[in-house]
Simulated scan of single mutants.
Amino acid sequence: MARYTGPVCRLCRREGQKLFLKGDRCYTDKCSVAKRNFAPGQHGQSRKKLTEYGMQLREKQKVRRFYGISESQMIKYFAMADKMKGITGENLLRILELRLDNVVYRMGFASSRAEARQLVTHGHFLVNGAKVDIPSLLTKVGDVIEVKEKSRNSDKLKELVENHSGNTARWLDVNVEQLKGSIVAEPAREDIDIPVEEHLIVELYSK
């Protein structure tokens, strides 16, 4: 399936909640969900009661859109999560959180996951000292992620450092001044602030 390239605000409206796909804009009055909190399209304002399958599908689509992944990637990650020990739904979210683009976003080096994905693709980051340009790379505890030396003078990254809130996930250790961070633990379910009922996704893929 090709990556969606249309207006991302339509995705938030389709799910009926903010997915924070446009960074800072999502926190302002310009947010489409705040202005038009109904699904896009001709029949968007007619609310229909979802079936059990419909609820499962919506949760799956919500997660895909949060992390910006394709259906084939979602299926691959679910298969990985299903083989791991523990709760499959939580395993799935943990895998998605450990994607390199999400880690860069969680560290505060990008204002959205889409921006993080672009920065990684353009080769601005090192993982354990080696240049990596694969956003889907699954990181692990102990990995060190840092901005490449040649990229540290970019206006965009300087702006991100100046506006960094310092509120990074507790499973990460970030040194904003050095544009560097490390993964100190695997993310627990309570560390993942995504409003999703992952058990519905498990039910969908287990049919």
Rank of each mutant, 00 (worst) to 15 (best):
G129K: 14
K60A: 06
I201F: 08
G108F: 10
P187Q: 07
C26Q: 07
K85T: 11
H164L: 04
M84F: 10
K22P: 07
T28C: 08
G181I: 06
I95N: 10
E115C: 05
R94M: 15
E97H: 05
V174G: 14
E146R: 10
Y205V: 04
V174I: 12
G23N: 11
S206F: 08
E15R: 03
F109Q: 00
G44I: 00
K83A: 12
S111Y: 04
Q118S: 13
K158P: 02
L92M: 14
R152D: 11
I134Y: 05
N37F: 07
L119F: 15
S165H: 00
V161I: 14
L19F: 01
C26K: 04
L204G: 05
S70L: 15
Y205I: 09
G44N: 13
K150A: 05
D191A: 11
I183L: 08
I192A: 06
K156Q: 14
S136C: 09
H199D: 08
L157G: 09
I75M: 07
L19I: 09
L57I: 01
H164Q: 02
R25L: 11
G23T: 03
H164M: 02
Y27I: 03
E186I: 01
K18R: 01
R99P: 08
G54F: 05
Q45V: 02
P195F: 01
I95M: 03
I145Y: 01
D143H: 13
L19C: 06
L98C: 15
L11A: 12
G89K: 11
G129L: 06
E149Q: 15
L21Q: 06
D173C: 12
R58C: 03
G129N: 01
G54V: 01
Q73A: 14
F20I: 09
N102M: 08
I69C: 10
F109C: 01
E162A: 15
H199A: 04
K60P: 05
I183S: 02
M74W: 09
L172G: 04
A188Q: 00
T28R: 08
H164C: 12
Q61P: 13
Y67A: 11
A116P: 04
D101F: 09
T139H: 06
L50M: 02
E146S: 13
N91Y: 12
I194V: 10
D155I: 04
M55H: 10
L57C: 02
A169N: 02
S32M: 04
A79K: 14
D82T: 00
I87W: 03
G166K: 12
I194Q: 11
K158H: 13
R94P: 07
G129H: 13
D29N: 10
Y67L: 13
K22H: 06
V196D: 03
Y67Q: 02
R117G: 10
V103P: 09
V104P: 03
V120Q: 09
S46A: 05
P135N: 05
R106M: 12
V103R: 05
